[in-house]
Design a protein around this nucleic acid. Sequence first.
DNA 1: AGGAACAATGAAAGCGATTGCATTGATTCT
DNA 2: AGAATCAATGCAATCGCTTTCATTGTTCCT
Lengths: 329, 329
Amino acid sequence: MSKPTIYSIAQRCGVSAATVSRVFNRPELVSPRVREQVTAVARELGYLPNPAARGLVTGRAETIGLIVSDITNPFFPLLVRSIQRTAERMGSSVMLVDAEESAAAEVRHVARLRGRVDGVIVASPRSSSAALREAAKGLPCVLLNRPLRDLSSVLCDNTSALFEAGEHLHKHGHRSFALLAGPSASWAAARRSQAIRGWARGRGVELTELGPFRATFKGGRQAGAALLETAATAAFAFDDLTACGVLAELAGRGVAVPGDRSVVGCDDVLLARTVTPSLTTVTAPMDDLGAIAVQVLTRQIEAPGGAPEHHRLPGVFVARDSTGPRSTS
Amino acid sequence: MSKPTIYSIAQRCGVSAATVSRVFNRPELVSPRVREQVTAVARELGYLPNPAARGLVTGRAETIGLIVSDITNPFFPLLVRSIQRTAERMGSSVMLVDAEESAAAEVRHVARLRGRVDGVIVASPRSSSAALREAAKGLPCVLLNRPLRDLSSVLCDNTSALFEAGEHLHKHGHRSFALLAGPSASWAAARRSQAIRGWARGRGVELTELGPFRATFKGGRQAGAALLETAATAAFAFDDLTACGVLAELAGRGVAVPGDRSVVGCDDVLLARTVTPSLTTVTAPMDDLGAIAVQVLTRQIEAPGGAPEHHRLPGVFVARDSTGPRSTS
DNA sequence: AGGAACAATGAAAGCGATTGCATTGATTCT
DNA sequence: AGAATCAATGCAATCGCTTTCATTGTTCCT
């Protein structure tokens, strides 16, 4: 009993393999009688088309690659889920690769994926633009949170939400702020810093820039320590993970949040809600980010060499417990 | 300029395609002169073997499937990373699928993966044993945190670590305990409950069983609320996520940890260190779990129908700040 | 020197699907 | 009725690679 193929089915049904193939791909070309018989036999034999064989002739793997810069960052799970869901709906599987925060690994993995997938999504790449461009040459590719003229991209833009965050803090009486910058290789970090600087300048408030810090809990603790050396009463952390580090550091030193200092994060990952105090942050539209990325990629795959698309989704400010009135010291 | 194949290379080198193929698969069979020439031309042309074509004849996809019950659970990222790393070392890619906590989805995905992968790892399955057995029929498969006689499994056994946790609490003067049980479909939950019951009985201390609660932050809050209705001064939460919920609930009600109550988690996920107070918990040997799972799977793939292997790795107790002396009320 | 053993290579048969083209009746049109 | 059209199906080539078997020189014995 070897694995059933279109041939074994064809034989059992007294038709040709071509007909069996058509039953699955272009059923309208096959007479209802034959169609049903083939379907029945296929089910009975537990037939499953061989993806390798199919892929060999169609040139499609029905699979997309997803490279994330660091899977342990709580930002990704929801994104992965959303991408997976959308891909599945389009009939594709997802090959996930964790680059473990290494730019070199990102590029290496794109190369390795080539041929096994129809296209790739690179989420929050750390690689240089040139490296990415080179690595993606001739391979449908969508960048997440990294703009690049000649490659499609889907970005989450938190500028306006960060403005709101600023206003929220300002209303609470804060006048002196700290910007805890994220990794310099991250576009999101640069973008957020820029937004906050812009807001502070426009508002005419004092802004102390610290960092860059790594986008990890530890990086956050360092940021927290640095923060305490300034007079800032409110701080913008690069993301929620960093913010949690800040919170932990402050708590460890007996500094009350939001009593003594206010902290805002970014991304609204699970952590943001579970930490105490819960984080005031900016919610990223994960579901849409993932879904759009897959859709764009699908388009790129179907029309290779088409013009790159660029999408930009806004984050949403959400106030929780890590921000409050300025301490009256 | 279409994609280079072994034929284009063969032509350029004045040899046959078979020779080119051998250069990549059995280089010792090819004369050094030819070997080098082929390698050079291949590099020059940017040749990459077509995995579909290769897979068609070898019957191998060089890919393993990884099904996780819920990718948003912080337990998984490190596991995924470890599995990925090991798989890569063995020359395989990983196809990740998130079952979104649905038992039905797990089974469905195993079916969908069949043919695209050489074998699957199912992590913390929620499906019934019968369903799993059926779904994995004829497909190399390794279960993570779920024992099943006829399927290979890799388990993390926290029994002795939980004993230690109990002793640790006992030393701090606790005499009345609560067991906040996890989801009933989870083997780990059952196992942990059993361990704790065993310890309490042996120690002759009072143990109140509560739950089952869902393995989510919310479930933890409910558990926390339930805990407060008992006189227990120390609680064993199912996992860290639940424990964090408990912590949040207690904090919200002004109950001090570890001042009023002590809490221990399990798994030692990132969260455990980031939450305040940091969680006393049991560290799961993620790296080993993942690595062993892949190795076992590889063996199953190479010798299909071989006897299933069963591995059991112990967790390690680690004391942090969520446990302390019994309150002197 | 004649044959055995061996190293290096090529020819060709698949692997399991898809798909363009040809074939065959049946139906419709004039 | 004969031509044209069309629906249903089969034939056979093809995708790119691996692998068995056969072939051809070389080298090594005795």
